[in-house]
Design a protein around this nucleic acid. Structure first.
Lengths: 234, 234
DNA sequence: TTATTTTGTTAGATATCCCTAACTTTTATA
DNA sequence: TATAAAAGTTAGGGATATCTAACAAAATAA
């Protein structure tokens, strides 16, 4: 059984090595900064996690998760995102309130609790931030998640979240005819004024880049573009 | 902010001094036994909690909660029982599975989470064990909770739980016409064979003492019988 | 009332997770 | 490539929460 702290280190390592960038390894200082601790503290924990065979770590080198460490880290992420979804869907928390509480809830130890929560939420694929929820089997597919503003012309995508949670913005989203899990097709981007033409439920609209960058989408035409880059070792 | 451990000590002190018996104070050894730690460990914590003005403690004396300590302890109990109710009602946990997970969940820090959970559950008064849930204002009334077997003849009561969770027992409960929150009137107790005659929803039945002692009830005719006994001090 | 048992306390140790300060290795730059 | 900067490590220490072993006080029994 891992401590809450150990789980947080594994989660941080997963986030640094898989989610944020093409990196597959993370440095001690970066990890420490991510967790809000001093490098010396992170260094101790890296040695401890290496002992437990959860990470690959060599003195003065970068660190990465082992298969076992990755599995455990993904479980924590799964729990975090299911709890976020629960807080949002069932308890009426807002988009920006869920994270802090989920940081605590993700460490509750009960497989049954998570299975039942998943069921209660009807096996959701995305959390309120639009991040994918790993499956019960530990599959964490990294879909091409980006803002509507970044989507290529001609591609189809699905709205999975918003970045702005203000009433003004949400009302505007509604007016444009968009809502969660809507399918969107990007028809064109005007070179003159940068407006993006989209089609939602057969209805066409034009939206500004400023609006579009607050709509989080997953591209349905970009599957499997993200291949792992080869490791560089001595 | 209290640590999980500190919260557990306050909760244990509340349980020992208020719920289990007429005691209003608890000894160091009893507290340690209740928490599964050694007396020396409990002793350290008692001194720490006295420092924080959460308990009354004197060397070689018994301990009790201060008003502030009691308030915090009741909050923990409230959280525990709301979570138990959630697990039972919303996630389909059984009566005997809820405690262990609630022991973890009760330490999550978020007032909003508890308020919303309370609302989601429709402001329940009792948890799945039949224990009363303290109100948001911190009121912990100790209703006259007992088994149907202990109820006085002529009194009205409400079924709030069961002690036996087996399928056989539950089916029998159903057959008698009982279910959670049903009102029951105790009509008579036969001196010959000890059978208890009850009325539920206008329907009369006779049940055995063995059956009755597995039905948890609150008496609706016994309000305010439990007065605090005067303290005995040097 | 003295002796024994129970209860409670203290001292010293361990494990976790965090820190600061000083040091070493690697990387970048001039 | 020599040196400065960045990154990483080690040593030593603090707080929390636990333990064991030895000791002290209070309660009980003879």
């Amino acid at each position: 059984m891992l401590s809450t702290t150990e789980e947080n280190y594994l989660k941080a390592l997963l986030q640094l090595t898989l989610e944020q960038s093409p990196k597959t390894e993370a440095g001690t200082n970066g990890l420490a900064a991510h967790l809000g601790v001093k490098p010396a503290t992170a260094n101790d924990m890296l040695k401890k996690l290496k002992e437990k065979k959860l990470i690959n770590y060599e003195k003065y080198g970068k660190s990465s998760l082992t298969a076992q460490g990755r599995k455990l880290a993904i479980e924590v992420v799964r729990k975090h995102r299911l709890w976020e979804t629960f807080l949002y869907e069932k308890l009426g928390f807002t988009w920006d309130e869920v994270h802090e509480v989920a940081e605590q809830l993700e460490h509750i130890q009960s497989q049954k609790l998570i299975d039942r929560l998943d069921k209660l939420l009807n096996y959701p694929s995305f959390d309120p931030h639009g991040d994918i929820i790993p499956t019960a089997k530990g599959e964490l597919k990294m879909p091409v998640k980006k803002t509507l503003n970044e989507e290529e012309v001609g591609h189809n995508c699905k709205m999975i979240g918003v970045k702005d949670n203000s009433a003004a913005f949400l009302q505007y989203v509604d007016k444009v005819g968009l809502s969660m899990h809507n399918h969107i097709k990007v028809l064109a981007r005007q070179t003159y004024d940068e407006l993006i033409e989209i089609e939602v439920n057969g209805k066409q609209s034009s939206v500004s880049p400023r609006f579009a960058e607050n709509i989080v989408i997953v591209c349905e035409d970009c599957e499997k573009k993200n291949k792992k880059t080869a490791k560089k070792k001595a």
